[in-house]
Design a binder for these strands. Structure first.
Lengths: 209, 209
DNA sequence: TACCCTATTGGACTAAGGTCCAATTTACAC
DNA sequence: GTGTAAATTGGACCTTAGTCCAATAGGGTA
């Protein structure tokens, strides 16, 4: 059983806004951390104890909110973003949404609106986290495969028979059976069906004939 | 080989805008059709010869652009939407993007911007179409399965052995083999690996143990 | 009632997958 | 040079999967 505590980050250069938001969000039983700039947020070590979201002011001195969003896309984090802004415009909001923001709220906004956006953002983050976790676990197993085993895995998930794989690899059917057995063992799967699903989850594709 | 001609629909109540857009988009070698209202567009029989997108004015008398978008989400069409607007606001653009719009352009916009959005929209539509097509084909096969065969399919893609499936269904292993053979034949697959992939594409899930 | 579809099973095989033990070869690191 | 990991193969066996032919039984329709 893994602990999973959601957290809401706030990044805004206006301290009164930070305090107001912090009070509001804490009242909704969320853990909160505030930052006065994008740079300050980037300093923080990645949060790993649960899903997270960032309530982010679009316009700030230094790195802007939009810039920060782009930074965060690079480092693959599960933190979902909600923008708030006093002086936004349509192209800005559209760009933010295209880049995966959960919401974009012009001030003044309804408190309920923000809280509902936060809930959606946390759910999205949680979803991403779970997927990432699963993929990471599978990749750990994949990394224990030798090159030949990996190659073999790809042919197996293509649905080929051992004898066909053998001829592809230029070895005997016997050898393929051994590799295949080791693949199943290392991947901790009991059936080809499971193997196909695992492979799919971490983007391993069957070779083209 | 299937013909695939992209088309761009335009829905705007202002006829001068329609004409201007039509000229522009035709100059980019796209087939174009124009509509003076959302209702008029809904009248049109669904376009099936290729990918399509809709350049849509947000504000129109009668059904608005946003309303039309919601309508189109219901009827599952592959038509992707690009909004254009003279008097939009942020919440409107955010809502449109949340609902899957490819872009949201306030007037006046750069012609290149619109054309690039159209290209992205057509690509997206094409992608959706291809997925839908594939799913439809698979579903045709699935629909030829008898209830028992379908049940059997779900157990097979869970990776279970024939004897295990047999005990789940309360029949002999022999019977499972027969069903299973028919499933493979009807689904036109030669391996469990392929079967798993097909099932996944049309949302068939393995039963929980 | 005759007919068809579905579901079920048996017999008799054939082929494919998987495992245990053992051995050889090669490449690369210490 | 010795050791280790990877790749390869053989033999012997057992388990699964898949197929052909044949047969029975129940439900529903023309």
């Amino acid at each position: 059983m893994k602990i999973s505590i959601p957290i809401v980050f706030i990044a805004d250069d206006d301290s009164s806004v930070r305090k107001g938001l912090e009070r509001l969000i804490k009242s909704a039983e969320f853990k909160v951390e505030t930052f006065a700039s994008a740079e300050e947020f980037l300093q923080r070590k990645p949060y790993r104890s649960g899903p997270s979201c960032l309530v982010l002011d679009v316009r700030m001195p230094g790195l802007s909110g939009i810039d920060l969003q782009k930074e965060l896309i690079q480092k693959d984090t599960s933190t979902s973003i909600i923008f708030i802004t006093g002086h936004g415009n349509i192209p800005m909001s559209v760009e933010a949404m295209k880049n995966g923001a959960v919401d974009f709220l012009p001030k003044p906004f309804d408190e309920k609106e923000l809280l509902s956006a936060i809930i959606r953002a946390i759910e999205k983050s949680d979803h991403i986290r779970k997927n990432d976790d699963e993929r990471a676990k599978i990749n750990c197993r994949v990394n224990t495969l030798t090159p030949r085993e990996y190659e073999c895995l790809r042919w197996v998930i293509s649905g080929m028979l051992n004898k066909q794989i053998a001829s592809k690899l230029g070895v005997t059917e016997k050898t393929v059976k051994v590799h295949r057995g080791r693949v199943m063992h290392k991947m901790q799967t009991a059936s080809v069906a499971e193997l196909v699903r695992l492979a799919q989850k971490c983007g391993i594709t069957p070779p083209k004939k």
